[in-house]
């Protein structure tokens, strides 16, 4: 699986699967039936050192389960998994020293302690040397702008501040791999920008490998050079964003500004999806020749402006999740 000529992979997953047994009440009465739920169903991928990978998928697709297996919280039902060359579930504590984990939905900090004390506890947990701790703390404090709220109890922090604190906590021991589960969820625009900027620098300057799950497409467009998409527990795509757009053959959008407002324009092979005064949005199938369409429009209508837009990543993903586009994963 590993690419030849590169150092050993950070994450190697081969046919990893996880299924849960659920006991559910069958109708009325105390009788319960067991059903098996397959959360992750044979996923294989490799993440090399220094990569920045986005791990996407609709809710319930198996993202969190994968993250939990990668970090050793859950034991896979089958398949083999190596993270930093270790088996996460067997060598959980040894692995914990080499990776950092952030859960966006819940903090790993201690609710009642000031952030500074939380970070001291982290230092104890990971047995970070005092001098190394001081150096990294100073660095992280500057980069994440922690100074103003270092002495505030975590429960009083805003979500953005808390996330920055969580990031610092996950990085104090200098991990090689950072795993983030929805790190920007619920953050405002400024906080998101701070977090993204920080992660970008961390990856570029430190070479820290980063794997993040997100629903925020801004995260993906800004950060992820590579995207993995899971759906129904299976890997649906592995590649970069440009290839993703191509692969799902998403439609493009032609925005036309007419000289004056009028009825929707008519032209073979296109469809007007929206009108707003003189402006009209035209869906352009991937197969259509944009130049020909523009020429055809110009012949019939008086046009003052025109713009061609690539499909939004959001639409691409929505289409993929809905199963609009027939797509078979191609080997990376």
């Amino acid at each position: 699986m590993g690419r030849s000529g590169t150092p050993p992979a950070m994450i190697e997953a081969v046919d990893v699967a996880k299924s849960f047994t659920l006991r559910r009440r069958a109708g009325r009465g105390p009788r319960r039936v067991r059903t098996t739920l397959s959360a992750v169903d044979g996923v294989s991928f490799t993440v090399g050192r220094g990569e920045f990978v986005g791990y996407l998928g609709p809710n319930g697709a198996g993202k969190s389960t994968t993250i939990k297996m990668l970090t050793g919280i859950l034991t896979p039902s089958s398949g083999t998994l190596r993270v930093c060359g270790m088996d996460p579930s067997r060598e959980r504590t040894a692995l914990a020293r080499r990776i950092g984990v952030v859960f966006g939905q819940r903090t790993t900090l201690w609710w009642d302690l000031p952030l500074r004390d939380s970070l001291t506890l982290i230092r104890r947990l990971y047995r970070v040397e005092a001098s190394a701790h001081r150096r990294r703390l100073a660095e992280l404090t500057a980069l994440l702008e922690l100074e103003p709220f270092l002495d505030t109890p975590v429960r009083q922090l805003s979500l953005g501040q808390r996330m920055r604190g969580d990031l610092a906590a996950a990085l104090l021991h200098g991990p090689e791999l950072l795993v983030l589960d929805e790190p920007t969820i619920g953050l405002d625009v400024v906080s998101k920008a701070t977090v993204r900027g920080f992660l970008e620098r961390l990856n570029a300057e430190r070479g820290t490998t980063i794997l993040l799950t997100t629903h925020d497409l801004g995260d993906i467009e800004r950060l992820c050079r590579r995207v993995l998409i899971v759906d129904h527990g299976r890997l649906a795509f592995d590649g970069d964003l440009a290839r993703l757009r191509q692969a799902v053959a998403a439609d493009r959008m032609l925005v036309v500004e007419l000289a004056r407002p009028g009825p929707p324009v008519e032209l073979d092979g296109i469809e007007v999806v929206r009108t707003e005064g003189p402006r009209q949005w035209l869906r352009l199938p991937r197969a259509a020749n944009a130049a020909a369409v523009v020429a055809g429009l110009a012949e019939r209508y008086e046009i003052s402006d025109i713009a061609l837009r690539e499909a939004d990543i959001e639409e691409v993903l929505a289409g993929l999740y809905r199963g609009d586009h027939a797509y078979t994963p191609t080997p990376p």
Binding site: T71, G72, I73, V101, R106, W110
Partner: peptide
């Protein structure tokens, strides 16, 4: 129940020690 055990499991110390010393 609250899912906070996951956060304890990603640290290199037994969760028993972490819970026992908490607070």
């Amino acid at each position: 129940r609250e899912g906070t055990l996951d956060a304890l499991l990603v640290r290199p110390v037994s969760p028993l020690v972490q819970i026992a010393t908490e607070d």
